[in-house]
């Protein structure tokens, strides 16, 4: 295996191997990647993403869903929806995959220390938040109440079930999961994630909120957080736009004056509030 260009070339994929494939739900899976023998891994921050390249099929931005404390294994969780992610879903242990990154802004893990932390996730939006959860759990004593509010489509679509259970049991993570629809087998909440916000205990005046999910869900979530008294400067959201390069060259991810790839994907809500209210921006 050769890699001719330097690792700093933002344009060339670096060779990685699929170390493990984990099916999460009917349409989501997690890939654990390791660098090719002899290649170094790179550190990343919670909230950042990589451009993942499947030979000849294409390249897509995928948030890192693994533990920033274990950078030697690069973990991505994604849903099979397009040609590239479907191709990725067919990869097996030992297969090669190209990686460019890490790109983008991180969740404010350090800045949140000393505060309550409220994570609000919708659907696959839990994946980009998981690295932040890892870091907060690793320094659990540095934070006040830590709450995860998580909305999924159905009980079958809930990601990282076992891990959430462990964190709840061992690290005092308060987890509230709600689904949009369910049958009798589901003993948990049914309803939208915003419904939970007024009902969980946290101190709104000393809370940092990190929100990731579909844009509509994030807008309503922020409204509820604001109603609860959380300061908008303490609310952070992760946005999604089309990306071809990840480094601000291709122009695709622009949202008004912001490049989601390099100014985001994690933004303080205040910085994008007006943009989120412009249709088709």
């Amino acid at each position: 295996m050769t890699l001719a260009a330097g690792a700093n070339d933002p344009i060339l994929p670096r060779p990685y191997r699929v170390h493990r494939v984990q099916k999460e739900t009917s349409d989501t899976f997690t890939l654990e990647l390791r660098p090719e023998a002899g290649q170094a891994s790179f550190p990343f921050a919670a909230g950042q993403f990589n451009m993942l390249y499947v030979l000849g099929v294409g390249e897509v931005p995928i948030s890192i869903s693994g533990d920033p404390g274990l950078p030697q294994s690069l973990v991505h969780t994604t849903r099979s929806v397009g040609a590239v992610t479907k191709g990725m879903g067919r990869l097996q242990r030992g297969d090669a995959i190209g990686v460019r990154g890490p790109f983008g802004t991180p969740w404010p893990i350090e800045a949140a220390a000393g505060n309550d932390v409220v994570f609000v996730a919708g659907g696959i939006g839990l994946a980009p938040l998981r690295p932040a959860l890892y870091q907060v759990m690793a320094r659990r004593e540095a934070y006040g109440r830590v709450v995860l509010l998580y909305g999924a489509r159905t009980p079958e679509d809930i990601l990282f079930r076992r891990q959430l259970k462990e964190w709840r049991a061992d690290f005092d993570l308060e987890v509230h999961v709600t689904v949009d629809r369910a049958t009798r087998d589901w003993r948990g909440n049914v309803g939208v994630v915003t419904h939970l916000i007024p009902r969980v205990p946290f101190d709104p005046y000393h809370t940092v909120a990190m929100v990731c999910g579909p844009e509509v869900m994030m807008r309503y979530t922020v409204m509820e957080l604001e109603r609860r008294g959380v300061q908008l400067e303490d609310v952070h959201v992760s946005l999604e736009r089309n990306m071809k390069c990840g480094v601000g060259f291709c122009g695709h991810c622009q949202m008004g004056p912001k490049f989601v790839c390099k100014d985001g994907p994690v933004f303080p809500f205040e910085k994008v509030r007006d943009l989120l209210n412009v249709r088709e921006v």
Partner: peptide, 14 residues
């Protein structure tokens, strides 16, 4: 009603 509308959007669907 707000909640129902959000559910109606089926935001997490494929």
């Amino acid at each position: 009603l707000d909640a129902t509308r959000m559910q109606l959007l089926d935001l997490f669907a494929e």
